[in-house]
Design a protein around this nucleic acid. Sequence first.
RNA 1: CCCGGAGUGGCGGAAUGGCAGACGCGAUCGACUCAAAAUCGAUUGUCCGCAAGGGCGUGAGGGUUCGAAUCCCUCCUCCGGGACCA
Length: 843
Amino acid sequence: MTDTTRIERYDATAIEPRWQARWDELAMHETDLAAARDRYYLLTMYPYPSGDLHIGHWYIVTPTDALARFQRMHGKNVFLPIGFDAFGLPAENAAIKGGFNPREWTMRNIDNMRRQFRSMGAMFDWSAEVVTCEPEYYQWNQWLFLRFLEAGLAYRAKSPVDWCPNDGTLAREQVEGADRHCWRCGAKVEKRDLEQWYLRVTKYADELLDYGGLDFPEPIKVMQTNWIGRSEGGEIVFTTAPSAHHRGGEELRVFTTRPDTLFGATFMVLAPEHPLVATLTAPERRAEVEAYVAQAATRTEIDRLSTDREKTGVALGSDAINPVNGERIPIFVADYVLAGYGTGAIMAVPAHDERDFAFARKFGLPIRRVVAAPGDESAELDAAYIAHAAGEVLVNSGPYSGLPADEGGRRIVAELQTRDAGKAAVTYRLRDWLISRQRYWGTPIPVIHCPTCGIVPVPDEDLPVLLPHTVDYEGSGVNPLTRDEAFLNVTCPRCGGPAKRETDTMDTFVDSSWYWYRYLSPHKAEAPFDPDLVEGWTPVEQYTGGAEHAVMHLLYAREFTKMMRDVGLIQQNEPWKRLFNQGQILGADGERMSKSRGNTQDPDDLVARYGADSIRLFLMFMGPWDQGGPWSPTGIGGVHRFLSRVWTIVLDPHGREAGDPESGVLPAGQAEAEAGAALRAAAHRTLRDVTTDYEGFRFNVMVAKLMELANTLFRYRGTAAAATPAWDEAVRLLLLMLAPAAPHIAEELWSRRLAAAGVPWTSVHAESWPEVDPSAVIESTREIPVQVNGKLRDKIVVAADATNADIEAAVLARDRVRAILDGRTPDRIVVAGGGKLVNLVIR
RNA sequence: CCCGGAGUGGCGGAAUGGCAGACGCGAUCGACUCAAAAUCGAUUGUCCGCAAGGGCGUGAGGGUUCGAAUCCCUCCUCCGGGACCA
């Protein structure tokens, strides 16, 4: 044991707060937004201030921060802001249940989470922080809303909400149980139609389907595409037939993707909410129809939409006339037709639609086949015939019989169009965005209801419409704004008469649809953002966050960006260039982490025990970032050991391990010069790999590569090689590569090296990312695996510049190979991949 | 039912047409210690074998290829999302 000067142990908790304070002092994380050089906007989804940061927040933020630091070392002017998505239901639920003020509850949580975020040592620019429940932020939600209103992009319409007689409007998660009762009072929840505010996002459906120039994960694009749900077809105008109880002649529009099957329509179905249901109901059927419609209204969505539920419905006692052949077909009301899609009415073609088939079977309605493969026309159908076979033609379709199905469909639509009875049409599943919430804790919608002028926008100069600070729920979930006289009563800005404020607030997805623009000038008083900064810094270069937002938030934000563009506020079409979705950290039980399940992990405890750097590195090391997985702290010790080892390598290069005879001895056959070359090769090869691993978000492999390099250095510790320039170079590279992932220990060891060399301190984080020296990586010999019939049998070592012929000769000269060949000649010798591997083929 | 993702040692995972199991955890043995912790070293897919060596092996089955965890087909399981969208 030659190690007499014992070094201190690696103690993260002693060094991390010190560097965090120093970085703050030097304002190292405040981005100079005015500087035009190499801007790199790295955005991570801002958290909801639920109370405590949990390990899942660290899992999102840690690699994002490493990436920010990596880009900064590449000379980029990196902007990494953070904020809080501070409006929303949990605060209000806590307020109603626990009697807190939602604002105080939220702000307390934010304070705690700020402290926790700081303990991570992330390079967040806190000077850019945004908190959405502050008037400074939400007034611009209001201002943007007014611009959309002027442009006709915001409008008001009736729509149903879940309504509790005691607690008013309920959110989806506030409706509980199969019997649909209120989460607070247990009363039965009903549907109620309210006038509510919408944003006209369906206008952008086609544009949203264009992902040109967007680097998004493929699954996200697929999910958004499905959500938008574009389908092409025709809109066909049926008319109602005269009957004993009414004159008929109303138009009944339907949307179909299969106009080619129009001759197969044997009945029609209206959604229970369809406006013509009452008119078309025959007096003798009224009681039954009304009961059915009422029952449909109370059904849960899930129950109603359940695919395997048996079809139900009621005949109205009226007929419709098929425009293509004048045929009279009966009209039904059934809840398998959705009011919100297409026209809320369908032509039913049981022969070619599964759902119509099931309905027809149940109600004994005719099933008429109109599409068939040639020669197959008369075959009895025992299920709807939907599949598209080559060469199928129309049958039983009057003058169109015999035409190929797709052409027949086009001709039918064209013919109907000449009579104004149909046209080609496109429908989407995407709906306009309902932004009204009947709730206190959100952005007040800035309009006034005047009995004489109607709906009057709040003038810009009267913004913000402030949310009252004190709030009294009076033991109920009903929006307290509706009782707040001071808030409610205003004078009409147009006529000066008494008027009432709108009491609905905005969906919090509005807040999260533009916050990265606000980060650029969070305190700007005269506009939501600075147009120059916005054009200079956005679209955001890279966005990171959870895949659970694949559709809602990510789609809303894209829509919002297009709306802002259309009212002339920005020039870009898309908010972000590149998106990465990390996976989710689950509890040890494999379930979603939640306080109620008791499977959360408090990061504070882990930081106190191992330090932030170990936790950061461990979260990156766990597995691929997009995968997530159940939380288990078992491996943290290994990562912590790695950092301790780096500590020892840097501070005690000449120490040796007691009890290890190999420690301090060069590997057999290696002289000092060869050892130096081996160290340089290892360091530069690691640098080459780690660089591409960072770029490809392969953080787990990156950490593994650094561990390998540390192991190599550790092996040479205490040997003559540890006193060479090659050692110093390898250590330097190791610290630079470690700096983005484990910023504190890298900074500490870097500063100690500078001090030891008598050089003034500069931060490791201000260093440039090093360059690979290709000459260091080149080796003089290489090892080639030898296979016989695809099975590994031997390995040979050849000169690095050996030709294929050299390699073949070397292989055939090997004793082991000759023994296996046993006098035979290989049928083929494959030297693959430029001499990477040899395969001898013997048949 | 539809769409998407994934199945590799005891565990997390690596290898995306070329040496399966990098790196780490755990485990076993050993060093240090009065002892423990910490640290260090060795071994660790599985079966046969004293060994040399060999057989098997990436959810199952088939195919393409000199060569497949990787590509193709059929199927199974798990996770996420959607779900009567005409």
